[in-house]
Design a protein around this nucleic acid. Structure first.
Length: 244
DNA sequence: AAGCACCGCAACCGCATCATT
DNA sequence: GAATGATGCGGTTGCGGTGCT
């Protein structure tokens, strides 16, 4: 049986005070991140290490970008969620200055609803019947990706609630009478700001340029922020089609 | 102005994963 | 390979703010 991460009797819980914040900031500035377990005592905080870590990462870190998410960030989150699922830390890793908690909260409070209003199941990023039709029509009308078109300002289909085929149930294109989805010709490229390398997803194949060099790293995670295992386990979804 | 409902965010909790011995 | 400890992650909760009646 594992010991609890801290002695809960002697720790504060709940909102952080300014003094606590300042202590944490001072300590991390002096000693850097890490050793979260011993940090509270060393910094004179009556908090558990996990709590300190969370506070620092989600709120006190100097490189945090606070404020509303931009449209491009929204787009990226949706794309990445379609690729990665609820791997918030990986998604946040692609958004400079954003934390996993922030991205997760934003997804749950804004983007989920937006997608649902667009007739996209936020869990599997598949279109439902009504909006498939809408999508086809929309797609024919202009070449904007549906997310761009729908999330953009003005005249969004989100303004017009869309009937979902079947509550909580993934609706297959076939069962809804939609035409078969065309063969994927998806070319979604992910780049890191610090790297010229990319993962390309093309025709359902994930191409990792680094594999060419066969770098033997022990790291589970690649420099791209997610492992090849993860990337390879990603199944293409309808949302990705939207960006086709 | 008061009560209520809803929403967004910060924080907590439990489990998973990684590193070390 | 097993055991143990530290850290990271994702789901969930609870509180405070805001808008509506």
């Amino acid at each position: 049986m594992r010991k609890p991460c801290c002695d809960k009797q002697d720790t504060n819980k709940g909102a952080w005070s300014k003094q606590e914040d300042q202590k944490l900031i001072d300590y991390v500035r002096k000693h850097g991140e890490g050793c979260w377990r011993t940090l509270p005592q060393a910094a004179g905080l009556l908090r558990c290490g996990k709590s300190c870590r969370l506070r620092w990462i989600n709120y006190l870190r100097p490189d945090l970008k606070r404020g509303n998410f931009g449209e491009d960030e929204e787009d990226l989150i949706i794309k990445l969620h379609a690729l990665l699922g609820n791997r918030w830390s990986l998604i946040a890793g692609r958004l400079p200055g954003r934390t996993d908690n922030e991205v997760k909260n934003y997804w749950n409070s804004h983007l989920r609803r937006k997608l649902m209003n667009m007739g996209v199941d936020p869990n599997n990023h598949r279109l439902t019947l009504q909006t498939s039709r809408f999508h086809n029509q929309e797609h024919n009308n202009n070449n904007l990706p549906i997310h761009k078109a729908a999330l953009g300002s003005g005249g969004t289909p989100a303004n017009q609630p869309v009937k979902i085929c079947n509550d909580q149930q993934q609706v297959s294109d076939e069962s809804c009478g939609c035409e078969q989805l065309p063969d994927l010709n998806l070319d979604l490229t992910i780049t890191t700001p610090s790297s010229t390398s990319t993962y390309s997803i093309h025709n359902n194949n994930i191409i990792d340029p680094s594999s060419i060099h066969n770098n033997k790293t022990n790291n589970k995670h690649t420099q791209f922020g997610f492992s090849r295992d993860q990337a390879e386990s990603i199944a293409p979804s309808s949302t990705l089609l939207l960006f086709h």
